[in-house]
Amino acid sequence: MNGEEALLHADTGVTSGKFAERSLNEIRFWSRIMKEHSLFLRLGFRAEDTLLINEANQFYRLFENIEQTSRSFTEQSDPEQIRRFNTEVQQAAANIFGFKRKVLGLILTCKLPGANNFPLLVDHTSREANYFRKRLGELNEGKLKPLPEAIIKENVFFLRIMADHAKFIGHLLDPSERKLVDIARNFSNDFDQLMYQARDLESMKPQSQTVPLLDQFLDQNRVSVSSLRDFKKTARDLIEQCKIKSIIHPLLADHVFREADRFLEIIDMFDAHLTSHSPQSSQ
Rank of each mutant, 00 (worst) to 15 (best):
N2M: 10
L7V: 00
L8M: 11
T15D: 08
E21N: 09
R22T: 04
S23W: 02
N25R: 10
I27F: 08
I27E: 00
F29R: 10
S31V: 07
S31N: 07
R32M: 13
R32T: 14
I33A: 13
M34D: 01
S38P: 04
L41H: 13
L41F: 12
R42C: 04
G44C: 09
I53H: 08
N54I: 01
A56N: 05
Q58V: 02
Y60P: 01
R61L: 14
I66W: 01
I66G: 04
Q68G: 03
R71A: 12
F73T: 06
T74R: 12
E75L: 00
Q76M: 09
Q76E: 15
D78T: 03
F85R: 00
T87R: 10
Q90K: 11
A94P: 02
I96R: 07
I96M: 14
G98E: 10
F99I: 01
K100Y: 05
L104A: 11
L106A: 02
I107F: 09
L108D: 08
T109Q: 10
L112T: 07
P113Y: 06
G114R: 00
N117E: 08
N117G: 03
F118A: 13
P119C: 06
L121I: 05
V122D: 04
T125P: 01
R127E: 15
E128M: 05
Y131V: 03
F132T: 04
R133C: 07
K134P: 00
E138G: 02
L139D: 07
L144Y: 09
L144C: 01
P146I: 07
A150Q: 11
I151Y: 03
I152A: 05
I152R: 01
E154D: 15
V156E: 13
I161A: 14
I161G: 02
M162C: 14
H165Y: 06
F168T: 00
I169M: 13
L172G: 04
R178Q: 14
L180G: 04
R185F: 10
D190H: 12
F191A: 05
D192R: 06
Q193P: 00
M195C: 11
D200F: 06
E202D: 14
M204D: 12
M204A: 15
K205S: 13
S208L: 08
V211Q: 14
V211W: 14
D215F: 05
D215C: 12
Q216Y: 03
Q216W: 00
L218V: 05
N221A: 12
V223C: 00
V225W: 03
S226F: 09
S227Q: 15
S227I: 00
L228D: 03
T234K: 07
A235I: 15
L238Y: 05
I239N: 06
C242K: 15
C242Y: 15
C242E: 15
K245R: 15
S246K: 06
S246A: 15
A253Q: 01
H255D: 09
F257N: 06
E259L: 11
D261K: 07
D261R: 05
L264P: 09
I266K: 13
D268G: 03
F270P: 02
F270S: 03
F270A: 01
A272Y: 06
H273M: 14
H273L: 13
P279N: 06
Q280P: 02
